[in-house]
């Protein structure tokens, strides 16, 4: 099956290629986490497939000009997932690969939580509950400016506990922002451990708020791409993709770690982790 991108007609859909990209993103994340010895590697590995599908297939984006005003926007609302964004920005060529070892280092622009002073970062994340509101504003602004650009907002399941997320969800539906796509990373963990407040049924909540909603395996590139394609058509509704992901996906020794928000990784043998990653994806 070959589909083309409406914005990049020459870019065919190549699932194996996207899977290889996701593997490279994971490799970059291991490089960052090994250098720092701690961090949000579980969440990052969990959304690697989503990042690959967005930056290497779905989004209209020029890595030579990350401030291009006609670009699609990607908001990483969970700023502490920065490790995943740095990996994507390195892989696509916005940031140099040799900076990966600087993740979380003093003076580095590859912070453990995103700051919008780093090229390619659309919004300072980290204080949860900000991403969707700013995404609504961007989608509204782009529509006013008569741009066709779309806005993709990554949220987490824990972040759904922030009331501001639902304020924004109401507004997006009211303003019929069908160029807006929320991707809710449901990995089942939050700061204090496994979900401390049950957010299920997540998809039904978004539907009730007036969003065109689909639920997928967020580690299956075919499903991710399918959901992103389905969100392309103008429907008068914003789009929610409820993506079930596995923290640490692709690296079994990290998948087996305690399902914790912040991992201290001093016990991880990074050579083993890298071998596991290569073995998983061949």
């Amino acid at each position: 099956m070959i589909e083309t991108h409406p914005c990049h007609p020459a870019l065919p859909l190549d699932i194996p290629h996207l899977q290889r990209v996701a593997q490279r993103l994971r490799r970059h994340m291991l490089t960052m986490a090994a250098g720092k010895g701690q961090g949000y590697i579980g969440q990052g590995l969990g959304v690697a497939d989503i990042m690959a599908a967005l930056y290497f297939h779905e989004m209209k984006y020029d890595p030579q000009n990350p401030a291009w005003e006609d670009r699609d926007r990607f908001i990483l609302s969970t700023g502490h997932y920065s490790i995943a964004l740095w990996a994507a920005l390195v892989e696509i060529g916005v940031l140099p690969e040799d900076e990966l070892t600087q993740y979380g280092a003093d003076g580095s622009r590859l912070e453990m939580s995103t700051l919008d002073s780093t090229p390619g970062v659309e919004m300072t994340g980290g204080s949860l509950g900000h991403g969707l509101g700013q995404g609504v504003g961007m989608a509204l602004g782009l529509r006013l400016a008569k741009k066709t650009s779309r806005v993709f907002v990554e949220l987490s399941d824990g972040e759904l506990q922030e009331g501001s997320t639902w304020e924004a969800a109401m507004a997006a539906a009211h303003f019929k922002l069908d160029s807006l796509v929320a991707i809710i990373d449901c990995n089942g963990i939050q700061a204090d451990g496994p979900m401390v407040l049950n957010m299920e049924p997540v998809a039904e909540k978004w539907r009730a708020f007036g969003w065109r909603t689909t639920e997928i395996d967020g580690n299956d590139i075919t499903q991710i791409v399918g959901a992103l394609h389905a969100a392309r058509s103008a429907s008068g509704q914003p789009n929610a993709i409820v993506a079930r992901t596995v923290p640490g996906k692709g690296v079994p020794c990290i998948e087996r770690c305690e399902k914790a928000h912040f991992l201290n990784l001093t016990h991880i043998d990074w050579n083993v982790a890298r071998r596991e990653l290569e073995a998983q994806h061949g």
């Binding site: 609504v136 400016a145 924004a168």
Partner: peptide, 28 residues
Amino acid sequence: PERFFNVGMAEQNLIGIAAGLARTGFIP
């Protein structure tokens, strides 16, 4: 009228939407 938005009783969202609009070049 096309440049005015009433976001309802939601002040966090008022400011969040405004920040997003500003990021696309508007002055809310």
